[in-house]
Nucleic acid binder design. Structure first.
Lengths: 247, 247
DNA sequence: CGCACTTTTGACCAGGGTCAAGGCAGGTGG
DNA sequence: CCACCTGCCTTGACCCTGGTCAAAAGTGCG
């Protein structure tokens, strides 16, 4: 059940088996979130969420109509970490598909972070990961639509791969084109055309909730994608190092 | 000399005078960086830098020609924090104007973070700050050019204000229009036209390294700027709280 | 079977990129 | 003191990517 989460922790290269067992033991209250449902409005929340299945997104509604997706939350990602007061962010988190999440009591997590340096390190790693992803999107924002979309597919593939959810060059992505458009910053119409371009070029094909990438290397070259920013080391144990700050 | 840094720490609302004195004491080796010079290429670096004067930027060169600026480094900001291995980022840091920086030995910083919870909190705060800024830029990226530029001015003003470097609605910004364009994601030509629009609308005026904002409230309304994401509390002591993670 | 949502396509328009040529400094050397 | 040069700002003309409006074709579900 915690599969994707643990697999991702393994990929991060900052945990050993004991760390993963420890963190798995504090994941409680698995529950299901329906597609299209918002998580953010729950007040007095004292739990961190781990996404285990499905896709969620962090978004903001702009002029009352258009929505901008700042990041996806993929299986293995944490969200709703406690914020530093006063609230520094007004992002909504919404489920784009039917999702399964685990809840982690904050006190348990902080306690674990205090007693296990690797867990602390993982929290830093995840945060820096988000930062790196956000900045990468800033860069891709200036690329033409097909490249940008391709780049997103590459990123999704890499992240899902690290969570053990890719089947070769293919992965499930149960998302409407509208959501994809909001993430890439295109209109639905133009995203659709862009998808057609990618499909006809044989680079990638999204259909019925599934992305198929015939030739990953080719797509990556097309999108000038270099996954180093994701900090995924492969499932290799790797410890040591100090504070592990970034930037 | 450490003025902007300490003022900003004060604004962050997570430090008391003792924290600031402690951190000030480990800032060593003040030095000057010429405009246009890159910092990133220094190997074996074991120091964190605090920017004290001037403006730097975190950028990447895209197709060999065009540069994208992912964030500005303003007085009071840290940069070149140690990275988690393997290197997760390939960003360059360059001085856009003549800069003064302080160097902080990493070991001293990590030691301080270990013994003073507030310092640890500040490191989190700064990182989350960067994250919030990056995401905000993602959102502004979809706004039309004048609003986007105005939004950037508002952000710069708020950050510089927190470092004690704003004089009312005006602040120094010794940056070429090309740099600004790369940050906002516009061409130099179009940025220039956009600046003219803002100037003629009486919203903001950039000239000879100085931005003047006649009516801050008006500019903010125009850009739909809400500075909450910067997490600046004003110079009020505020402690407590636990891990202070965000997202 | 009908309803509602999503995907697809067409036609038209505009924000912003690109190319290219002038202004307008400040710095240097005669 | 002036000619010159280099770099930056400014403006014009033209084009193209991608937005908007609108309608048709799937697709899933009660």
């Amino acid at each position: 059940m915690n599969g994707p989460f643990l697999t991702k922790l393994e990929y991060s290269g900052h945990t050993d088996a004991a760390d993963r067992a420890a963190i798995a033991s504090i994941v409680a209250h698995h529950r299901v979130v329906a597609a299209r449902q918002d998580l953010s409005a729950e007040p007095g929340r004292s739990t961190v969420l781990v996404l285990l299945q499905g896709v969620m997104c962090r978004y903001r509604v702009m002029d009352g109509r258009s929505r901008r997706i700042a990041s996806f939350v993929l299986p293995g990602d944490l969200c709703r970490l406690p914020e530093a007061p006063p609230k520094t962010s007004d992002w909504n988190i919404g489920a784009l598909s039917r999702c399964a999440v685990g809840e982690i009591p904050i006190e348990a997590l902080t306690a674990l972070a205090r007693e296990r340096p690797n867990i602390n390190r993982i929290l830093w790693w995840m945060t820096l990961n988000e930062l790196a992803r956000a900045r990468e999107w800033l860069v891709t924002g200036t690329m033409p639509a097909p490249q940008r979309t391709a780049h997103l597919f590459c990123e999704l593939h890499a992240c899902l791969q690290a969570a053990g959810l890719a089947e070769g060059g293919a992965f499930r992505l149960e998302i409407g084109q509208a959501a994809l458009a909001d993430a890439v910053g295109l209109s639905t119409v133009h995203l659709n055309r862009t998808l057609r371009i990618l499909r006809e070029a044989g680079l990638a094909c999204l259909s019925r909730g599934r992305v198929e990438i015939p030739d990953l290397a080719q797509l990556r070259a097309f999108a000038t994608f270099d996954g180093a920013y994701l900090g995924l080391n492969g499932p290799v144990a790797r410890t040591g190092g100090a504070l592990h700050l970034g930037t």
